Computed example of a mutant assay.
Amino acid sequence: MSAPRFLVDELPSGETSRLAGPEGRHAADVQRLRPGEQLSLADGRGGVATATVITAERGALELRVDGRWQEPPADPRLVVVQGIGKGDRSELAVQAMTEVGVDEIVPWAAARSVTRWQGDRGEKAWRRWGSTAREAAKQSRRAWLPVLSDPANTAAVAARLATAAVALVLHEEATDRLSGVPLPATGEVVVVVGPEGGVAPAELSVFAEAGAHQVRLGGSVLRTSTAGVAALSVLQARLHRW
């Protein structure tokens, strides 16, 4: 099993470092890392360091820094516009999409979204998406945290699609398959995933005017919590990252 990863604001610049705060408590008190064990640190912006535990105390570790490197950002970038779902389905989608390598998630207040992000409730829901993505990035040993954009309405999504290298809308009635769509060598691949009720006809028209193409994954209709994950898996394989 690979060494556990912990997220830090800045990578250590010296030969030794102290891991404290929430990450230090998790490493020392929950995972119970001990002297001689290895771990890795990431700043969420591509920077990674490997380290060995020198001493462990309650809530903190003293580390010897063994190496550092910078991982380049993904290109093309994979962006998913995720229709806001009800209950925990949206958070399940965020978790799984982060694990399979999404570069940016755009919460979309679609016409058929049952849940509405308004006021404090909306702010809390957005923050939960961010926390979910952060924990999933740690678990999957990512060097880059996915960007979580501000919630977008349909007009804002259309504007984003218009600037993408490739813009795709998942729809069960589409005739083209995601596996056959030409992909760019650089830029953004933006995929729209509807909420539980799917993408409304008026939204499909707006997105088509912005240059988006409708595609399907296969013969079955997937939930909003799994469609984005399936699409990302296809794209990762086609881009030879998997």
Rank of each mutant, 00 (worst) to 15 (best):
K124G: 01
W126D: 04
S17V: 03
N153T: 06
W108P: 08
V81T: 07
G180V: 09
R32S: 01
V80I: 14
V189E: 04
A165C: 11
A200Q: 14
A93S: 09
P107R: 03
A74L: 02
P73M: 09
R238A: 02
L61Y: 05
W242Y: 13
V114G: 03
D103K: 02
D150M: 08
L178F: 12
D120P: 14
G83E: 12
G130I: 11
P73G: 08
E91L: 12
G180C: 05
R134T: 03
F6Y: 13
E71T: 06
G194Y: 08
L183S: 03
V114P: 08
W108S: 00
R128Q: 11
E71I: 07
T98V: 06
I54K: 12
V53C: 06
T175E: 14
E10M: 14
A20N: 08
D150R: 10
L41Y: 10
E23F: 03
T226Q: 10
R127T: 11
S233R: 11
V30C: 02
T115E: 15
A164W: 03
V189D: 05
H26F: 08
E91W: 12
R238S: 13
T224K: 09
D43I: 02
S205L: 12
E57N: 14
D9F: 07
M97V: 04
R141C: 03
G24I: 05
A111Q: 15
L78N: 05
D120Y: 13
V102D: 00
R5Y: 01
L161S: 07
Q38M: 14
K124D: 04
A3D: 10
V206D: 10
V190D: 04
V169H: 01
Q118R: 14
G119R: 02
R58P: 07
V215S: 01
A208D: 12
A152L: 14
L7P: 01
P4I: 05
P107V: 10
L11M: 11
A212L: 07
S205G: 08
V199E: 02
A137F: 11
L148P: 03
A143S: 15
L148Q: 00
A164I: 07
P35I: 00
V206N: 09
G180I: 03
V53T: 07
S225G: 06
H26E: 02
L63D: 02
V206P: 08
L204N: 05
A111E: 14
W144L: 04
P184V: 07
G194F: 03
H240S: 14
A174M: 06
E196I: 01
S140H: 09
P151H: 09
T132Y: 02
P107Y: 05
A162C: 12
R134M: 12
Q118A: 12
W129D: 00
A74W: 13
S40C: 04
G46K: 10
A3Y: 12
V100I: 12
A231D: 08
G101F: 13
G218E: 02
A143P: 05
L33G: 00
T226H: 05
R128N: 01
G85N: 10
G211W: 05
